[in-house]
């Protein structure tokens, strides 16, 4: 806004070169967004609209499409693996979102201090986020290995006679995957919280101190309400990212054992690249999209309600 007002004041009144300033500014503006928009249009929008078309068709990726109406949806909704995938995706998302949020906020509060070498800690916590998924998966596979993995060694030392099989167990594979997912992502969300914490004016916190608020009260009554925007952002990004989580789980378990960690995105992958049925894959992708869209809209509503 400020830029616009300033520009308005300084703008010469007469048009130059047959083009009004307004039009020229519009063109410059358009030229700035064009590269991004072309990319979005070609790489996102067209494929999305195409997927919308595909979910009502049977297509193997090569031969002409065949219109099948709602058959793809009928198939996936009655497919046991799909039903389980939806439930597992929801479980995965709920645990990932809640725990990652709590941990990243906690870490941000801890790390928001003036200490020598704090940069090292910040980097260490952020590092998993930038590390390669494949490398991360390989390391965690070793840590969770059921016979000689570090985690089970520790559990045995603590007196657990029969520690879980983790990736080799249908019960424990999903929790193990959630743990790795949280560990991988919390550094990123910690940075967001950290930035928000550092934005909080010290005067407010100091005022609270003068009024006799203890540390917990200062956090809960002053900082937490001011972190609202960051919290909404973190919650929304986490939800979306958890729902579409694919690479990490693929690298860790490929959806196994059995279908224990086959989440929606893995299901979509299997339908596309094992069965070569793009129709069913697109139908499943639409369901995923619908779920995420509804949750995101709900989060927006919530944010609006709180900001009023």
């Amino acid at each position: 806004m400020a830029v616009k007002e300033k520009a308005g004041r300084e703008a010469p009144p007469a048009p130059k070169g047959g083009m009004t300033l307004r039009r020229r500014r519009t063109l410059v503006g358009l030229s700035f967004i064009t590269p991004n928009f072309v990319g979005f249009f070609v790489l996102n929008l067209i494929p999305i609209l195409f997927a919308l078309l595909l979910c009502f068709n049977k297509w193997d990726g090569y031969n002409p499409m065949e219109f099948v109406g709602l058959d793809n949806f009928k198939y996936i909704f009655t497919h046991k693996v799909f039903q389980q995938a939806v439930v597992k995706t929801v479980i995965f998302t709920v645990f990932s979102v809640v725990i990652t949020m709590l941990l990243s906020l906690g870490l941000a509060v801890l790390i928001n201090q003036k200490l020598k070498g704090i940069g090292i800690f910040r980097t260490a916590i952020f590092f998993p986020y930038v590390a390669s998924v494949v490398a991360v998966a390989a390391v965690w596979q070793m840590l969770f290995q059921k016979d000689m993995g570090l985690i089970n060694e520790i559990l045995r030392a603590l007196g657990v006679a029969d520690p879980p099989g983790w990736f080799a167990s249908t019960k424990w594979a999903l929790p193990a995957v959630i743990v790795v997912n949280i560990w991988k992502n919390m550094g990123y969300y910690m940075i967001i919280y950290l930035a928000a914490l550092q934005d909080i004016p010290t005067s407010l916190v100091e005022a609270g101190m003068i009024d006799g608020a203890n540390a917990w009260q200062r956090f809960w009554r002053i900082k937490w309400p001011l972190l609202r925007n960051a919290t909404f952002f973190v919650a929304m990004m986490l939800t979306i990212n958890s729902f579409k989580s694919f690479d990490l789980i693929y690298a860790l378990t490929e959806g196994g054992p059995g279908t224990a960690t086959t989440l929606l995105s893995q299901y979509i992958y299997n339908q596309s690249f094992v069965s070569w049925d793009y129709g069913r894959a697109s139908a499943a992708a639409m369901v995923l999209f619908a779920i995420v869209a509804v949750i995101t809209l709900f989060q927006f509503r919530l944010e609006k309600k709180f900001s009023d």
Binding site: P47, F50, A51, I240, F243, S272, A281, S282, F289
Partner: peptide
């Protein structure tokens, strides 16, 4: 929407 991209 980006979720859906890449499936086709």
């Amino acid at each position: 929407l980006g979720l859906l991209a890449g499936c086709t």
